[in-house]
Amino acid sequence: MICVLYYSDTGHTRALAEAVVDGIGADGIGAARLVDVARIGAEDWAALDAAPAIVFGAPTYMGSTAARFDLILEEAANRWDTGRWANKIAAGFTVAVHPSGDKMNALVRLAVFAAQMGMIWVGQSEIGAPVKPGRAGINRDGSWLGLMATEPVSDGDLETARVFGARVAGASARWSVGA
């Protein structure tokens, strides 16, 4: 079961997390579990440790991921020296009020954390308008390192999140073959 570990203060990050979960479950690709850092418990930690993939989601506040989310990453770092999360698939998403909002810094923060944990990072691959005019709203922030969205979250952002979830599930399934 793939875990989507997220923090949401205003509901925008949760909406994206739910769409990622929908994508993970699309076409029977995989099963997913939402893990809200505000309510994380022992069962959630066990699920994260057992998951073949973890998708990290946090709002961008003042140029990085929200401090409440960072506390969970610091707690998870105690798995580093044992390699407990090594070779898991990892991916990330963020949302901010402004189209730039320094969201790339938040994604870099998540990707570096995953790299330090020995995880395999999966980026976002969807191409939208203006390159593909018929796909207005898809990847409207033009991010490839991970999924970015701008508040208020649009239908295109949610569709991008669903496709992103399916991509993570597919990568997880391919990576797990023969493991």
Rank of each mutant, 00 (worst) to 15 (best):
C3Q: 01
Y6K: 07
Y6C: 06
Y6H: 10
D9C: 11
G11Y: 04
G11Q: 03
R14N: 05
A15R: 10
A15C: 01
D22K: 03
G23M: 00
I24T: 05
G25R: 14
G25Q: 15
G25P: 00
A26M: 05
G28F: 06
G28S: 02
A32K: 01
R33D: 04
D36V: 02
D36Q: 05
E43F: 09
W45A: 09
A46T: 13
L48T: 06
L48M: 13
D49E: 15
A51E: 08
I54N: 05
I54L: 11
F56L: 14
G57H: 04
T60D: 06
T60Y: 00
T60I: 01
M62Y: 13
M62G: 09
G63Q: 03
T65E: 11
A66E: 08
L71R: 09
E75W: 06
E75D: 14
R79M: 08
G83P: 05
A86T: 07
A86C: 03
N87H: 14
T94E: 00
T94Q: 02
V95Y: 04
H98I: 03
P99F: 01
S100R: 11
S100I: 05
G101V: 01
D102K: 03
K103Q: 13
K103S: 02
M104R: 11
N105E: 04
N105M: 14
L107Y: 11
R109M: 14
A111I: 06
A114T: 03
M119E: 07
M119A: 02
V122D: 02
V122R: 10
G123L: 08
Q124C: 15
S125F: 06
I127V: 14
I127K: 02
G128A: 01
A129G: 04
V131N: 12
V131K: 15
R140N: 10
D141V: 08
G142N: 05
W144T: 14
G146L: 00
G146F: 05
L147M: 08
A149K: 08
A149E: 07
A149Y: 01
A149R: 00
E151V: 07
P152G: 02
G156I: 09
D157F: 00
D157R: 02
L158P: 09
E159D: 14
T160K: 02
F164Q: 07
R167H: 13
A169M: 08
A171T: 06
A171N: 08
A173R: 10
W175A: 04
S176K: 10
V177H: 13
A179F: 02
